[in-house]
Amino acid sequence: MNNNFKTSDDSVVILTELMLPSHSNFSGKIHGGHILSLMDKAAFASASKFSGQYCVTASVNRVDFLNSIEVGELVTLRACVNYVGRSSMVVGIRVESQNIRSGEVKHCNSSYFSMVAKDLDGKSVKVPGLLIKDESGLRRFLRSIKHIKMRNARKIEFSRENFEAKDYKDVLKNYNVKISM
Rank of each mutant, 00 (worst) to 15 (best):
A43L: 08
R94V: 08
K169P: 01
I148C: 09
V177E: 09
I145R: 12
D119L: 05
R151S: 10
F113Q: 04
I132Q: 15
E70K: 05
T16A: 09
F44D: 02
I30L: 03
V125M: 01
Y175A: 07
I148A: 13
M1R: 11
D121P: 00
V116Y: 05
F5C: 09
R139I: 07
K106T: 03
H31G: 03
E157R: 15
M89N: 08
L172H: 09
G129M: 03
V63H: 07
N82W: 06
S144P: 11
S37I: 00
I156C: 07
L20C: 00
Y112E: 12
A42F: 08
V91I: 14
F163D: 07
K166A: 10
S68G: 10
V12K: 14
H34Y: 13
F26R: 06
G92E: 10
H31A: 12
K49M: 14
N67M: 13
G32T: 02
K41G: 09
D9F: 08
L77C: 02
S87Y: 00
H23G: 00
N109C: 14
K6F: 12
K133G: 15
V84N: 05
S68Q: 14
L120V: 07
M19C: 07
K41M: 09
V177S: 07
K166P: 01
S37V: 01
